[in-house]
Design a protein around this nucleic acid. Sequence first.
DNA 1: TTATCCTATAAAGCAAGCTTTATGTTTCCA
DNA 2: TGGAAACATAAAGCTTGCTTTATAGGATAA
Lengths: 110, 110
Amino acid sequence: MFPLGQRDERHELSDHFLALANVTRLRILERLGEVGEESVNDLAVYLHMSQPRISWHLRMLRVGGVVRTRRDGRQVYCSLDVESLARERARLDELIGIKERMKVRKEVGA
Amino acid sequence: MFPLGQRDERHELSDHFLALANVTRLRILERLGEVGEESVNDLAVYLHMSQPRISWHLRMLRVGGVVRTRRDGRQVYCSLDVESLARERARLDELIGIKERMKVRKEVGA
DNA sequence: TTATCCTATAAAGCAAGCTTTATGTTTCCA
DNA sequence: TGGAAACATAAAGCTTGCTTTATAGGATAA
């Protein structure tokens, strides 16, 4: 009945933006933007928050395609998933971009 | 102690992304992208949802700086707030963009 | 293997988002 | 001026997000 995947597309997109919709998580992203990569515990220390709390937010960020993690020994290092961020951003553009395209068409005169 | 406004900056940013973090609201945005502008009731009819429900989501979208509304007679017409969308996007870039800048510096050889 | 460090997950409780039903407000028309 | 149309807001209830406390899993070192 529907072009397959539209429903899940929107769910993934909303999950992505939900990951960005929290001050604590934005602070994590800001930190990762500064240092590039940091372990879970160091993040917790830096933000003065409990480790389970940070882990919980990191899960939201991972599910939302904002952060990726890499294991090295006992530590888990986190960094921004830049490619995924760009991909989700493009998805939103495609979702709402039709009006923009019409604007451009008008300007171009097509 | 802190550069004034950092706290509220992040709150506004999280409110913005919260506005995008819902399937119903994404469907509203998709519709507005197609038709450019539409009244509240027409949106409700199109999405097969109650009017208060749509009004509630539109409030989230307005607060988040995603949609703006214009009154014409009894109808309220909604459209995408493209400028605000771009502004919030730039804010996120600034928040997490430092790593990117370092990347560029490396490439440039600075 | 045992002990320890680092991280993830579970359970319980509180806070916030979301939906429905009902009602208030504004604008237009008869 | 009364009434209907379009939209917003309020209250109640349900769902989901979030935090804390406790515990389990995985990797290293002794």
